[in-house]
């Protein structure tokens, strides 16, 4: 077990944590870093953002309840009234999807969100792990994002994912990537 694998197991837990403990017993460098990372963890827990203003939740309940009630009883006439609108929306969505082939990835999400009106709340925008990783890479170079990109790409191509971080950690160890 190399240094990073041991540290990851100590910080994040998992089946390798016993072996990691043995590594730390003999490696002062890892002991020191593990201790520093735990301090950061503890400080993070204490540095949570302040709570929202007291009236925020109550205002939110009122707003949600009002919207919830408004959409409570659609009835058959409501559905009939919306049929032309649904057909128009479907046509617009089709045109938008054809057009989006020419757009960069990040613009596509906004367009999907608008065109389809978010039928499934978790898929609006439909961020896959691969695409979220692209956003990471756009923000800052991140080795973990590269790992995730390769995993997600392998999944999309139907190749098995090993979940093995060895190559990733080895590259970090050798100074090839900066994590």
């Amino acid at each position: 077990m190399n240094h990073d694998e041991a540290l990851k197991a100590v910080v994040a837990g998992g089946p390798a944590s016993v072996e990691a403990g043995r590594h730390l017993a003999t490696c002062s460098r890892c002991r020191e870093e593990a201790s520093a990372l735990r301090e950061i963890e503890a400080a993070l827990r204490e540095a949570a953002p302040a709570p929202a203003p007291a009236d925020w939740q109550e205002a939110l309940v009122l707003r949600l309840s009002a919207r919830h009630r408004a959409g409570a009883e659609p009835g058959p006439w409501t559905i009939l009234r919306w049929r032309p609108a649904l057909a128009s929306a479907a046509l617009a969505a089709g045109l938008a999807l054809a057009w989006m082939g020419f757009l960069p990835l990040q613009s596509r999400h906004a367009a999907v969100s608008v065109a389809l009106g978010a039928p499934d709340p978790t898929s609006s925008p439909a961020w896959t792990a691969r695409e979220a990783c692209l956003l990471d890479l756009a923000h800052e170079d991140s080795t973990a994002s590269l790992l995730q990109w390769s995993e997600a790409s392998a999944a999309e191509l139907g190749q098995p994912q090993t979940g093995d971080l060895g190559y990733y950690l080895a590259a970090t160890e050798s100074g090839g990537w900066n994590g």
């Binding site: 540290l7 990851k8 994040a12 991140s142 973990a144 995730q148």
Partner: peptide, 13 residues
């Protein structure tokens, strides 16, 4: 939308 191991790696890094 990540594997558990990837989430751990993100956390560590």
């Amino acid at each position: 939308g990540l594997a558990e191991g990837t989430a751990k790696a993100h956390y560590f890094f």
